[in-house]
């Protein structure tokens, strides 16, 4: 029963988690929060990770009540993500692995989300909607790969939400998406926004420029409130996501759908996906903030699967990469 520690730092969350045979022993996280109207820049985010890495690590070991001798393998996020934050976190992981004398494994961040979702929800072979600040993909497993059936052809859905929150100067604490979700509950006018679905792909960049323009004009003239805009944006982009997910389910003949990634903890998105699943007699699987949002345990879990199937990463390959597609990874732990 291997015990695996995972380091995640591909974006503005620094997370370290420990997994032992499907059990989460500890999973602390520290988020770099920027002032309203500002996004997180790579250099500052890297600095944040460097400053907090050791504290979070100590907290993690304490919560799990383990000593370094108990750890069998160290895992870290190899990519995709922002370069500087990735590297800052990987340095810590490499150092720890050498100090503790255990093997190291570089994990694909997206695979981390999928495996954590499968572990927590017990979904067997779902169509996966992976939605976050940097990714928007509809994924299904076939022949040893997580294959991408649909995806965004420009910006990620979370990026669209984050940037819209900046236009409205919403708070980034705890996250821009959470504050849009809360504001949307008070909105009720549906503003006509572009609805862009191309086969199983979606596009968000046009919606963002459009709503930016509308926001400035309509808010000034008092035709709508910021809450109405949040509501309209969520209703439109989530409907697009549910639509392409449904198309992928019909295409693959799947009866399970799993939502993962930071945007996946949005309750309205889960509701809409649930309604779609119900109509198709399919089952919806979703997780809450602890596991949807980037965390260390998900890297540990994917790493645990790789480790128990006999994989480790040679030292000279323990680098990071900003571009690392989900379908590049050969899945050695599933049939």
């Amino acid at each position: 029963m291997p015990t695996v520690i995972g380091f995640e730092g591909s974006a503005n969350k620094l997370g370290i988690g420990i997994i032992r045979d499907g059990e989460v022993l500890a999973n602390p996280r520290h988020t770099y929060i920027t002032p309203p109207g500002q996004g997180f820049l790579p250099r500052d985010t890297a600095k944040h990770h460097q400053e907090h890495a050791l504290d979070v690590l100590k907290q993690c070991m304490k919560e799990a009540n383990l000593t370094p001798q108990d750890i069998d393998c160290v895992c870290y996020t190899k990519g995709p993500g922002m370069g500087a934050p990735l590297v800052s976190t990987a340095v810590v992981a490499r150092t720890i692995a050498q100090l503790w004398g255990v093997p190291i494994i570089g994990v694909n961040h997206c695979i981390g989300h999928i495996e954590m979702g499968r572990l927590i929800t017990k979904a067997e072979n779902p169509v996966v909607l992976y939605v976050s600040g940097g990714n928007t993909q509809v994924i299904a497993y076939s022949q040893r790969r997580y294959r991408i059936f649909g995806e965004t052809i420009d910006i990620a859905v979370g990026n669209c939400l984050d940037r819209f929150a900046r236009i409205l100067k919403l708070s980034n604490d705890p996250s821009p998406g959470y504050n849009i979700e809360q504001a949307a509950k008070k909105g009720n006018i549906l503003i006509d926004l572009p609805y862009v679905v191309k086969g199983m792909d979606v596009s968000f960049s046009g919606i963002l420029s459009y709503i930016e323009d509308v926001a400035h004009k309509k808010l000034k003239s008092g035709e709508c409130t910021p809450e109405d805009l949040c509501f309209s944006l969520q209703e439109t982009i989530f409907a697009m996501l549910v639509e392409i997910t449904e198309r992928a389910m019909a295409h693959c003949g799947s009866q399970e759908v799993l939502i993962v990634g930071g945007v996946g903890c949005n309750v309205r998105l889960q509701e809409m996906m649930g309604a779609m699943a119900k109509e198709r007699n399919a089952k919806l699987f979703a997780t809450d903030m602890r596991f949807c949002i980037d965390n260390g345990a998900m890297i540990a879990q994917a790493g645990w699967e790789m480790f128990t199937s006999g994989q480790t990463t040679p030292w000279d390959e323990t680098w990071c990469t900003q571009r690392y597609r989900t379908d590049e990874v050969e899945v050695t732990w599933r049939d």
Binding site: A239, V242, E243, A275
Partner: peptide, 12 residues
Amino acid sequence: KTYRHPTLEERL
């Protein structure tokens, strides 16, 4: 589609 807002559903 019950998941879509009725106005959006009608329009689409």
